[in-house]
Amino acid sequence: MATQANSYELFHQIRDTLDQHYDRRERLIKLSRDITQQSKKLIFHLLRINATNRDRIFAEADKRHQDILALFTRAAPELQGSDRWRYAGNITGGLQEYIEALALWWFLRDRVLITIDDIEAQLNLVLPDPSQPRWVVLPSDYLLGVADVGGELMRHAISSLAKGDPNDALQICTFLQSLCGDFETLTGPGQREANKKLVVLRQCLAKVETACFQAQLQREEYGDKVDVTLWTEEESADAPHTSYG
């Protein structure tokens, strides 16, 4: 009889433990999804940048960033110590999207690749008290997040060319070439996610390289007289463009 009572108590404890674990996981999955959504909006916002609206775009980005950071602050206490790894898979989606947004922002502003330290500094910015839970960015989160910026920069490069700014596109091209090169040395067998992203990154790079090459040909043939709207399909809504007629 004694063991029966013990078993009852034990399963009660297991129930509480599992409930707590499932609830926490659920909360983090929700936060991760919210962070993803807001980060996506931040990315779209940043891509509306042009030569005249830089300051306005960055100021607005700052505001949006604060909202995202508030979500991260809510998640932080649940991800301390060994729990960082326990729930790594539940939060990584949002974190990667956020890193992608930050990486895009940093590139547009300073033409540099954001570092893990930069990201951690942003995430822990809102923590005035050093005893408060801190955010740790895992190298895998960083790599997978940064890899995604290739797609955004490709879009930006193409639209820069469309706006007649081949310089910008060339800078992106150089940046992506270096990023892709770094990635090649960091991926390998057993890193399925990273390898998949590398494939996409290579494709993005190839598109930017081809676009830059074509732009160069155009310039050789027509010089600066070329009307950019003739050879591009994309037109930015923000850009004041000349009409066909």
Binding site: Q4, Y8, L10, F11, H12, I14, R15, L18
Partner: peptide, 12 residues
């Protein structure tokens, strides 16, 4: 008895 024990859990 084992079945009863497991019934106490809220399994996902």
């Amino acid at each position: 008895r084992l079945f009863l024990s497991f019934q106490q859990l809220n399994l996902k």
